[in-house]
């Protein structure tokens, strides 16, 4: 598991996880803010609840992010290895049916195909009305 975690949390993965790290940062910021410069006096019940709500959300999000990253990147590593093993007739092993290859654009721009069959392009939307 540890070894797996090391292979999972590469720089690329961390970059993907940035979307969740930012909200975590926001919540951490508010915890700090309310603890250091809290505008309200301390109340054993409500102050604890306030910090509990933020802290609890922080913890749950951190845990779920970790688990899902291991599941997703772990499977990615596995299928990559499977693909390398089966490089001869690789096609079937690593067909990419999904849009998982994130950011890359198809290198050749596809032809302008008519959409629902007509030929309108984005510059003539008024035709649609």
């Amino acid at each position: 598991m540890i070894a797996m975690a090391e292979r999972v949390f590469t720089k690329d993965t961390m970059l993907d996880l940035l979307v969740n790290i930012i909200p975590l940062g926001i919540m951490a910021f508010f915890i700090g803010l309310f603890v250091l410069w809290g505008p309200f006096s301390w109340d054993p019940l409500y102050s604890t609840l306030m910090l509990g709500i933020i802290g609890g959300s922080f913890l749950l999000l951190a845990i779920l992010t970790y688990i899902s990253a291991v599941a997703i990147e772990g499977d990615a590593i596995k299928s990559e290895e499977a693909g390398r093993a089966a490089h001869a007739e690789d096609e079937s092993a690593v067909v990419d049916t999904a849009e998982t290859n994130a950011t890359d654009t198809p290198d050749e721009t596809p032809d302008a195909t008519g959409d629902d069959g007509t030929d309108e392009r984005k510059d003539s939307p008024e035709e649609a009305v």
Partner: peptide, 12 residues
């Protein structure tokens, strides 16, 4: 104080 807590998470 409760409102402040919920506001923080809502912004996040």
């Amino acid at each position: 104080r409760l409102r402040a807590g919920f506001m923080a998470v809502s912004l996040a």
